[in-house]
């Protein structure tokens, strides 16, 4: 297993957080959050990868075949579902901001002080 997927996961984590911290547009910000989350998908799949392993579906392969770890795939799937919920909620909030207050800039929205 090469080092590359881990580097990609770390890069996505870092660059996504940078995006979230500096974003001036709520839609862009939510997309940056999904970039951070994508880091977890890559990391999970990289951890479960087995060199030359097949997909863990035993319908048409012999039972003793070498397969990749199915657990991380279910974790990733669960993660995708969870994230879809959160992103849907965040995008709904962003749409409300645009509709009612005419701005998507989190700084312009800002009413909270100290």
């Amino acid at each position: 297993m090469s080092f590359l997927p881990y580097a990609v996961a770390a890069w996505l984590f870092g660059v996504g957080i940078y995006g979230v911290a500096t974003s001036r547009n709520l839609i862009h910000l939510v997309v940056c959050l999904t970039v951070v989350q994508s880091g977890t998908y890559i990391l999970l799949l990289a951890i479960g990868y087995v060199g030359a392993g097949k997909a863990p579906i035993f319908a048409d392969i012999p039972l003793n075949s070498k397969v990749v770890d199915p657990v991380v795939q279910t974790l990733t799937l669960t993660d995708v579902v969870v994230e879809a919920t959160v992103v849907a909620l965040l995008l709904a909030l962003a749409m409300q901001a645009e509709k009612r207050f005419g701005t998507l800039d989190p700084d312009e929205l800002g009413v909270m002080r100290s």
Binding site: G39, T40, L43, D79, L90, A97, R100, P106, M112
Partner: peptide
């Protein structure tokens, strides 16, 4: 709206960090 956004964004980041930790 703003309170909920700040809450959701920071806590989602927290959840992602937790998941990174679990993966490791």
């Amino acid at each position: 709206l703003e309170g909920s956004l700040n809450f959701a964004i920071t806590n989602s980041l927290g959840a992602i960090m937790v998941l990174f930790g679990i993966s490791l």
